[in-house]
Amino acid sequence: MAESVITDEMKAAVGVDVPGGTSEVTTSGIRMFARAVGYTDLIFYDEDEAKKQGYSGLVAPPGYLGSAIFRPGGGGAPGGGFSIPYKRILNGGTTYEYLAPVIAGDTITSFSKVTDFRERSGSRGDMLITYRETTFKNQDGTVVAKMRGNLIQY
């Protein structure tokens, strides 16, 4: 194991909520997501069918929490913006917990915090694993989902 890459700045960031930006749950975004996965259920494509089943609009498929809004030059580096000497990134795992329905027309804002950093030496060499929890709220301030994930840098 090489020297630790976890800086004091990173240690100080553990447990601190950071705004993660805003995303829009759009009809087009829902349909694109559903098509990319291969869903056939009409509640992701047909508003009338979704309403027939008691929803107010198209339903966001599991794992879709709106399309992120990126702007060239607007920042938002992957990996949390910490200065890490590793070039490669792998997504280690993700869990979604739903607390309320997510429906087309919702605007989702998120807050994210690092819950832990761990370092490991494995088949890919030295790696840093960043554990993160993100909370998603809709326009009414209702927490609709939580995402827990980890990112592997090596």
Partner: peptide, 21 residues
């Protein structure tokens, strides 16, 4: 997520799901 949705629909809801890669 689709595996679970297709099994639970139309009356059921996926409350939590996730995996390790």
């Amino acid at each position: 997520g689709q595996l679970l949705h297709d099994w639970a629909a139309p009356g059921g809801v996926v409350r939590e799901f996730g995996c390790e890669y």
